[in-house]
Design a protein around this nucleic acid. Structure first.
Lengths: 338, 338
DNA sequence: TATGGTCCCGAAAGGCCTTTCGACAGCACC
DNA sequence: GGTGCTGTCGAAAGGCCTTTCGGGACCATA
């Protein structure tokens, strides 16, 4: 780490190694026409002096900033952090750095950040929504590749990565069926959310395939624990014989579990429960712990980042929405604790 | 927004406005010696062509990148997101952008990111820990200002901002006392955490000041809902007459509330509860909702960012740990619901 | 008309790196 | 000893912006 002095420049290194600026550059960048002994001398000098090339100068040359913008409206970081980690992985930490901008759900602020990122000459932009509903496209006139993660763009010309909520719904049901449950109900959140509808569709499709009817109708209302509690109470009253519940979020599941507990139903023996999100602070602290479907957001972030790279390398992915596989994490609510 | 063509350079603008490169630059930057009519012409042209200066070239000149690094180990984003927002506010969104790097609790990765940020020539670095324990300093040899947020540095020569856990503990108790509670107990997490000790110290100090004894000893164990449940059960068994509980985190409070409910104690009438973190997904979904102490992390982030600016402007803050005021958010657990 | 002063403008340098291209040394071969 | 090749190196330009500084136009004054 350099101490507070002037930052070391390549010409300092060259001088110290007794070669010309050009040779030093070639030595540093592994170009061919430099003798091995010379290269060693230069690299040693660079190392000794803690030289790192000034990225501003490099950008100026290469017309690439090795920088990516992450534009989000996810205030709590629930979705954006895993995506960020995936992106870091894809780029190889340190080779590309990520500007994180939080639009706070305000489209004016979003435009503002967008302009700033473009001015910055980022090499690409990943837009991370806070729900899986499709969101307005940023348009086609942005001079760098843009990819949408979690919330897909509403313009089919854009590239989007989003969790496969339908398949996730199937998975949840199939898991319950495999446990021998046949009286399965579905508690969901706001009907206006794509996530709610897609998960419900997956649930119903899987049940239909198995020839097992859904118990009652899917119950939509809001994404809260309170609704989870109330919905569960309602279900038990109408269908005392149910033995499985798919809750559309961990919050709903927590509420449902509370009601089940209060009404004396054992989970998972009497009623098994699965849900979505795998939000650890909720799923692993409940009684029992909650089986939940994880959206592999880190993988999703990695894929999004990679697609930006591919586009830059002239190999753009086909436009459209890519539905990303999910993964069931089994916990106490759907398997007997030992 | 420029379409995919070559990015517009200042000389393009100058040509279009019929002035020299230098004049265009001066017009853009509000320098004095350019006629008002000329300036207007240049600005119009720049606007029309969607010109934004290439930051690489600017950095090269100014030796400032208008870029800050946020180095964190907070995987879930619970703390880093508010700090990021505060920093964006302090810098004025768009004028300075933030590189977010996640070290994932790995000190090797942290060093790696640190080197990358320094190579990037960021103007400053904000280090965000995931707990309020002091953390190893990054050292004094970093060529840009460094400030520690949430987790203070263990080196008193560094500048740190951390929540005032002690004062927060006092606040929690004083609130309960103001409600008329006199039999107050304290449930905490891992004793090895500074947050646990500081909050407990504040709790005890406030009680001592009021001449009210703490009920039992503070109960330390782990930061989980399960411990919250167990600790509450233990307390009620030993001290059936208690009427107030300070839980050291929202997770603990949730557990405590569950036990209280199961044992038929009304909250807040029989027993009032307060806690720390104000993690909305926990605090606002519990039965009843939880009064909790918010750490004003956004303000804290703003202060941290500003201190970097001040340092750059030659006005560095005094080194040491700054304890940041907190704020009680009152909810159902400590006030009768209407 | 010459002189001095004001305004504005533009040529050029500087910041740091990469790349091209030409130069030069050394060697082998005829 | 000349010719041509290979292998190594360095001068210089280019990328984009800002700043310095000198010069030109214009006006007013003597």
């Amino acid at each position: 780490m350099t101490d507070a002095s002037r930052p070391v420049t390549l010409s300092d290194v060259a001088k110290s190694a007794g070669v010309s600026l050009a040779t030093a550059s070639k030595a540093m960048n592994g170009r061919e026409d430099v003798a091995e002994s010379t290269r060693r001398r230069v690299l040693d000098a660079a190392d000794r002096m803690d030289f790192t090339p000034n990225p501003a100068a490099q950008s100026l040359m290469a017309n690439r900033s090795r920088t990516v913008g992450l534009l989000t409206s996810d205030l709590v970081g629930r979705f954006v952090m895993p995506v960020l980690m995936g992106a870091e992985d894809a780029f190889g930490a340190g080779r590309v750095d990520v500007f994180l901008c939080d639009a706070r759900g305000d489209s004016v602020r979003e435009q503002h950040h967008l302009r700033a990122l473009v001015s910055r000459r980022v090499d690409g932009i990943i837009v991370v929504g806070s729900q899986t509903d499709s969101r307005p496209s940023l348009g086609q006139k942005i001079p760098v590749p843009v990819v949408y993660a979690y919330a897909p763009s509403d313009d089919p010309r854009d590239v989007s990565f989003t969790p496969d909520n339908r398949a996730a719904g199937r998975t949840a049901v199939e898991h319950l069926l495999a446990l021998g449950k046949r009286r399965i109900a579905h508690i969901s959140g706001e009907r206006s959310y794509a996530a709610a509808l897609d998960r419900a569709a997956g649930v119903q499709a899987a049940l239909a395939d198995a020839g097992v009817p859904l118990v009652g109708e899917p119950l939509f209302s809001e994404w809260s624990e309170q609704w989870g509690r109330d919905a569960m109470a309602l279900l038990l009253q109408r269908h005392p014989d149910l033995d499985g519940v798919v809750a559309a979020s961990d919050q709903l599941a927590r509420g449902a579990l509370e009601t089940l507990r209060e009404l004396g139903r054992d989970v998972p023996t009497d009623v098994a429960v699965t849900s979505f999100d795998n939000w650890e602070v909720l799923a692993t602290q409940a009684r029992p712990t909650i089986s939940s479907i994880d959206f592999n957001l880190q993988d999703l972030g990695r894929a999004a980042a990679r697609s930006i790279f591919d586009t830059l390398d002239g190999d753009p992915p086909a436009p459209g929405v890519r539905y990303f596989p999910t993964r069931l994490v089994i916990r106490g609510s759907s398997v007997a604790r030992r």
